[in-house]
Design a protein around this nucleic acid. Structure first.
Lengths: 347, 347
DNA sequence: TTGAAAGCGCTAACAA
DNA sequence: TTGTTAGCGCTTTCAA
């Protein structure tokens, strides 16, 4: 069934070849093959004949030629930091839900938090005349992002902005509101001694979590305890910090975690030191990441609207492309504060 | 700093434009800009002048034109089923480790186990003249894969084959050996009553797990108990089955799980019914997927060499491209049987 | 309805 | 060393 065909044996089938074969003009086949037969009032007989011929010959339209001519590729590039979690998968689904009916298609790549790689990928996308680039911003990549703008290519940031690049459109989860939801949940449980585990890489949406934490405490008239608030680098092992925080006699009775992964680690550490979740300590995370739903974990968390973010970004991209604008400075904070209550706060 | 440039304001800078600006011939600039200045013995002065000019004008080479001319794109397409786990991330790293030094670059997409989507993505890649396609095979997509072969485009399957398409080259984790490692580990712990949780979607590498389970039992002279062997559809909720299996008086003292996610769920279910892991039941999974390392889980498992798989696939792709072959039927089973011992088997 | 032909930006063969 | 030029395959204008 499979046949190890030698590429060199095959001649690429082109519109002109089909035209010659059919004994008609190149433009006629061109119109037919690009779906403009109706518009050009080409006889149905001719159309059918050409279509059949194209299929027989195994014709594959050459997008390179087409796009060279149109000077656009029909491709929207997605540039993620990595593909480790479900975020890329879900936002891609959102992107597809919008692009599905259009003439645009997405292609993905990652920058792995590496400025050199980001630059390389962007260069590639620009050289291939991608019509727009959607990226999770990376702080060290400002120069590269600026290059996209200078090039006149639409750029959209996902889930955060970059200082000094406020004109770039952004679609993000409203982490502030979501954090408030999480905090309110803990407070509604009667917990007043709430600790915070999070990280701070300088991005606003990340910082929004700490700020919401602070504001909620303030609103409730609860004093902030600096020793109950920890910021880590991303991907840190936080168990030690948790043990430290909870070894004191006077310890928190709840934990708000800026990221599910911290909540997951915290639950492990707390139970490891004999504390009961949620009886002794209620824990809530952010993002409903895979793992938080495992029966042994059961982390309460707030859902993030990843698919909607992708969808919004895609429709924004199309808008920018059609307006021939690289950016307009619009901001879109998507609400996503569905509380997912699991074991870690089910008192 | 950012400047909402209007695309229409910008004229695309081309080699001929630079040539005119510099007052020299198109070919000269062409040679310089494609790095062939040395070879063509172009004076360094001219070269520097052109390079500087290109930079000043914000020249971005038009890959569309270049590739139309060469009739190849320099792109290798990666077509995953989804991006939920770390698999895509890690294998992409492997692909990059090989492509980094070459003229090829990867672009990603997913087929989401959807034959229609797979077909669409493949069509796109063929139209864009991708030089090779690397895909995690999807059973319902045979016709589409065949189309890649018929087109003469190199195709490589990741982690499995497809029945009737044995000529397609494959790079996969040697799941049989890895399964043996896992089983031997349980046996070395003195466990004889070993249950199996896995799935069967008809793919060989998946089936290899059950087969290894059977063979290991046989080798040890242990009778297979059908009620201790369960196959589920992927992404199933298996807790109920686990409870059922372990409610009997005569129950397994160990579980071999064909997928970490089953192991994770099993640990939750077992502990939920009051059984101790690993004292009552030792559990081992496959793949070292994220989540298995969580402190509350601690699932022992076998590492899968995802990065090596990506790397091997990439170098194979380059080979096929250069040999102008769409496939050669080679098979590459990569050993990855590093046992990762965690709580679930630490007696 | 159909045909002829220009040209998108780049490469590379050929000439000078 | 440098200049000229013919395409790559497709779209689209202009003529017939």
């Amino acid at each position: 069934m499979v046949f190890a065909a030698s590429i060199s044996m095959k001649k690429q089938v082109s519109t002109s070849m089909i035209a010659k074969e059919a004994g008609i003009a190149v433009s006629t086949t061109g119109f037919i093959l690009s779906g403009k037969a109706r518009k050009m009032k080409i006889s149905e007989k001719t159309e059918q004949r050409v279509l059949a011929l194209a299929k027989d010959l195994g014709y594959v339209p050459n997008a390179l030629a087409k796009n060279l001519r149109r000077n656009r590729s029909g491709i929207i590039g997605l540039l993620y930091n990595h593909l480790k979690h479900h975020w890329a998968d879900e936002s891609l689904k959102g992107v597809r839900s919008v692009l599905g009916d259009t003439e645009y298609s997405p292609f993905l790549s990652t920058h792995e938090f590496d400025a050199k790689l980001l630059e390389k990928e962007v260069e590639l996308m620009l050289q291939h005349r991608f019509d727009a680039i959607i990226s999770v911003p990376f702080k060290e990549g400002k120069k590269t992002y600026q290059r996209i703008i200078d090039n006149g290519t639409p750029l959209i940031f996902l889930n955060d902005t970059l200082e000094g690049m406020s004109d770039v459109d952004m679609v993000a989860w409203n982490a502030r509101e979501a954090s408030k939801t999480a905090m309110n949940h803990l407070i509604s449980l009667g917990r007043k001694k709430i600790g915070f585990l999070g990280w701070d890489d300088g991005r606003r949406m990340i910082r929004a979590r700490v700020e919401a934490y602070r504001n909620c405490l303030k609103r409730e008239g609860i004093d902030l305890r600096k020793d109950w608030m920890r910021l880590f680098p991303l991907e840190a092992d936080i168990a030690e910090s948790v043990v430290e925080m909870f070894s004191e006699k006077d310890r928190p009775d709840a934990l708000f975690c800026g990221l599910d992964i911290y909540g997951i680690q915290a639950i492990g550490a707390l139970e490891g030191m004999g504390l009961k979740v949620p009886e002794d300590v209620a824990v809530v995370g952010m993002g409903n990441q895979p793992g938080s739903e495992f029966p042994s974990i059961g982390l309460s968390t707030v859902n993030s609207p990843n698919e909607s973010i992708g969808a919004k970004a895609a429709s924004l991209a199309i808008e920018l492309i059609e307006q021939k604008q690289s950016c307009t400075g619009s901001r879109h904070l998507l609400h996503g504060d569905d509380l997912v209550i699991r074991r870690s706060t089910s008192i």
